[in-house]
Write a protein that binds this DNA or RNA. Structure first.
Lengths: 186, 186, 186, 186
DNA sequence: AATGAATGAGTGTTCATTCAT
DNA sequence: GATGAATGAACACTCATTCAT
């Protein structure tokens, strides 16, 4: 059921999918869906927030377990690539759903953005990278990875994303470094 | 009317806005909308494709008018920043609408992606940057710029985006370079 | 279970209460309700007709046991007051449910209306009251008592209804008498 | 449309009637109903409160225009009889709907109960009737009239209700008087 | 050209009822 | 006997679209 919903949402957007579509694809009745989720909106929110918050926790694990910035960044980028390769539908759903659902993430919740931004702060503090606005660097990192995934979704880039992990990591490192170069100049 | 539609679409998504909402915000009757656009979908498509194709033409202009890669890239990044600053609603609408409407762009149409990708190809051919998969580099560039805009939309980054133009350009250059470093290693 | 159903029906009307509400309030499963009543409608009907027919029997008892009209009427009014005071929810349920369920009372069934109407006929025959249309007098008696109960339900009248028994009896007697005065004039 | 809704509500209760039923009976589409009333509940409430508040105003007119208690009471009773005879469906709807909708009447709104209760207060003040709890007397008056109407609805009383106006007025007067006799005894 | 009332298909949701466990 | 998951037929309501005026 969650699988059917994720794939339909990824393909046609949340509003483009009816409860009947999901029920049909999952092979259950419409009413049965309401035993598990009190509304369609709750279903979408549950799918989104579960994956979003789990990803945040996994990035935090990486930050906790690995010692230096470049290994952390490499592991984080590789993690996103693996997520994409293992479940492109979920990944696409996340990219689509964020526009409507991100604002609903509570202020106190820990997000992937927090995990990466704090990893940047660590690196600046340790001198691994020049001083940089953490969220600006975070945006660059996310942008490089997610836009590459998006190009893959649209068929503009071939092959598994994991194969691109090392080069994406290098690009992210270089971008963050370059952002820092500018900031020092100030 | 186009203004009202753009802002509502940007705020609530295409499916989250009814014809009545747009008519009300534009101060016209619902029926009047159908004199200009045969359907809601056509209205959204018209707004999207107009801006999308115009942006492609503007990027092509930059490529035609400027001689070398780094000035071209700087102008392109600055152009996106200016687009965002001058009309954040339209920018947000583009980011949202692409998931549903991009596939409708005909194969023969010229897109911003084409313009940037060919600018990359030029640079590789001229030796300005190491050999790199053009679409991979394009993804990195778009990612850095668009994700930064997205962070700005969500209130995570302050100030006009134009002020970030130079640093985004540096980051994009560095990222593209780094992608190339990897590719040479192959 | 009957208790839970009665109170919910009284508070929100039969259609305003779901089987799930009743099951939840009674602390049993929904399915368990169907072991006792074949349908929600049967449950409501059972609650209603049981109380309705029992009241008819009790009024018949009063008529059988007491000798004269004024003592019978006093006892009947007092009986309604006691019913109300002892179980306002059931009383309210009866008032609400009659609109939908009264027509289902079979023609042969003995109702509270029959009991009071025949008491009126007795009184006319005995000369205790002037000739009067029995059902018109019955309507007046029921109206005085039930509307007073309704005002109590809506919080417009304080105190136990039983305290009002004597005055309601006097009012009912006077009303019946007055109806008869008119009829004689014919 | 209002006619169709009133008659269906009177016959089957508000919850027993679907929007489709009303639309079908009125010969319009379901959607068209929503141009006039924002919800089914609003439709029912509008029908109820309009008639309820108009009746209150008409009773207030009677109180204002007629000088003494017995003429006022006679006119009020006759007014109810005329209402019933002219539109039994509306009358029945009012009797049914009050259980769910009366609590929604705002505390500041003027109701038929207010009009009658103040007429009673006038009469007590003028010495036209013995001292009596105004709302208790009001309950008796409403009960006599409304229950008679109800018996008529159920087919237990024949003829137009207007023909019963004088006898109902006598009964109401006598009941109020009798209630007062009791109160003096206190 | 513009209006706004009307349409009717479609949506999310509820709920009485059934039935395998 | 009791449970609670599942069903499927409603239901209230929305909305893109049409069209007479």
């Amino acid at each position: 059921m969650e699988r059917a919903a994720t794939e339909l949402f990824a393909a046609r957007g949340i509003d483009g999918v009816s409860i009947g579509d999901i029920a049909g694809a999952a092979g259950v009745s419409q009413g049965a869906l309401y035993r598990h989720y009190p509304s369609k909106e709750d279903l979408a929110w549950s799918l989104f927030s579960t994956a979003y918050l789990r990803t945040a926790a996994e990035l935090d694990d990486i930050r906790r377990l690995l010692p230096d910035f470049s290994s952390r960044l490499g592991a984080m980028v590789a993690h996103f690539c693996a997520l994409y390769d293992s479940d492109p539908a979920l990944f696409r759903f996340m990219l689509i759903a964020q526009h409507g659902l991100l604002p609903r993430i509570g202020a106190g919740q820990r997000t992937p953005v927090d995990a990466v931004a704090e990893t940047i702060e660590d690196a600046v503090r340790d001198g691994a990278i020049p001083p940089v606005e953490p969220l600006a660097a975070t945006a660059a990192i996310f942008g490089i990875v997610l836009q590459t995934a998006l190009f893959h979704i649209y068929g503009r880039l071939p092959g598994p994303l994991a194969a691109r992990g090392p080069s994406l990591t290098r690009a992210a490192l270089a971008a963050v470094d370059a952002l820092g170069q500018g900031e020092t100049a100030l």
